[in-house]
Design a protein around this nucleic acid. Structure first.
Lengths: 253, 253
DNA sequence: TCCGAGCAACGAACATTGTTCTATCGACGA
DNA sequence: TCGTCGATAGAACAATGTTCGTTGCTCGGA
């Protein structure tokens, strides 16, 4: 009760500085020389690999320390020499996903498509690992790979000619919306899977919305189709377009 | 492993219909007559009250079945007669919060302010209970109170004259962004509290952003101030304004 | 008035989770 | 060669969500 433990150890500024300067070189300590291949040492990279595999298979809620550990042929205690927390493992996963996003050279003529593309890359990465967006909403400015994506998105928006603060906030909002969208999509997919057999597809949801009492839910009933529409990622691109058009009005109004 | 249990029991359509038709009357079964006051029976409402109190005090992660139960002077097993899951408890909490949102009569002349106000109400409710937005991202169309807010937001946007589908999607995006914003804000506040004593304020974050290598993070370093700015809820209203202006261009461009 | 059925309440327990303690093993430097 | 230090594990602990029986109460009908 009173002794609420620290949810996550905040690193000091010195640690932060060390983290930044050590970003290159450092050929993954623990790999040492990859001397024999009798045991294959545990490294952060291998932990991340195993964790991503687990999430891809069973969703973020199936990502436990024991799952990852047994997947590596060891016990859960062995992971804590490389990862401080389960939360830090989540950060590392997001970092890995972000590091695989290709960032274009900002082109003022195509900034809109470029920004959309980066968001779509993020979206596809997140959707590939259901529920992993949860971890993206807990991280703030921790990982370098995550910051790299933020830098890339900001660069594209600045190339549009928008003022710095508005570009920064829009980039942030787009990232937030992307993770929220993926989280909702993952949750919906999970919910439609669990009744194993009786799936809840959009048509079923539309049907149920129509069953609401029309006196209290007139618009929901009337536009049930529009509310549940959005096959593919139409809704996703629509919202981002809204944001970008609000930031810089499109040439042809 | 193989026997992955259903994360949440999906209700059948009949149950859904019964849920809708039973929305009024039904003076909370279990309250019966409030006969004596010797024990005060456990009701869903009292569970929700206790749960909200727990979240307000210690955040969403301190919301455990045992916390709620002992707060009501009983054991955790007693709650399962009224609540199916911890997840359902989360849904109920969101429902309670949503039920306290005041929905205005849509006014085509003031729809922008009206919509903003509803979102701000949601934001303040969510921020009052740190981390509770997590539960809002897991719920899809379950609770009636939640649907009521959706109906209200949709009604306001329709009053603006926007096409139905765009209004529906924008309403959805605004709700998504609101929950994401609150989740991020709660996480940041928690992280700044945990080092008990050594708080991480925006100034500290700005400082750290400036420490990044300028060759790889030129814009992040240059605009560190803009990235960390946004005292109060400037960022929140900015993003929503972006969405609304994208939906219906403002009269004075 | 009495009885039985149904249901809320509860104590105890189970499985699973994150995390820590401590011992062992190995390699590398002095 | 020895000592030290970090990685690896085994075992364990505390806490969590959830379920299983049992108990007790209330209410409807004989």
């Amino acid at each position: 009760m009173a002794g609420r433990r620290a949810a996550r150890d905040a690193i000091s500024r010195d640690q932060w500085a060390a983290l930044i300067s050590a970003k290159d070189a450092a050929p993954e300590p623990g790999a040492r020389r990859a001397s024999g291949r009798e045991k294959a040492p545990i490294t952060v990279e291998r932990i991340i690999d195993a964790a991503l595999q687990a999430v891809e298979a069973g969703g973020f809620e199936d990502l436990t320390m024991r799952t990852v550990a047994t997947s590596l042929g060891t016990g859960p205690a062995s992971l804590y020499a490389h990862v401080r927390n389960r939360a830090e493992l989540g950060d590392l996963l997001i970092g890995r996903l972000c590091s695989q996003v290709a960032l274009p050279e900002p082109d003022p003529a195509r900034w809109r498509d470029q920004f959309m593309d980066v968001c779509a890359q993020l979206r596809d990465q997140f959707l590939r690992y259901p529920g992993i967006a949860q971890a993206a909403l807990a991280v703030v400015p921790a990982d370098l790979a995550t910051l790299r994506v933020g830098e890339g998105m900001l660069a594209i928006l600045l190339a549009s000619g928008a003022p710095a603060r508005q570009a920064a906030w829009t980039s942030d909002a787009a990232f937030l919306y992307t993770t929220g969208y993926c989280l909702e999509a993952s949750a919906a997919r999970r919910q439609s899977e669990d009744a194993d057999g009786r799936a809840i597809d959009p048509a079923e949801i539309e049907e149920r919305l129509r069953m609401l009492p029309p006196e209290q839910f007139p618009h929901t009933v009337a536009h049930a189709r529009e509310l549940t529409a959005g096959t593919g990622h139409d809704r996703f691109t629509f919202t981002l377009t809204l944001l970008l058009d609000g930031l810089v009005p499109p040439p042809r109004a």
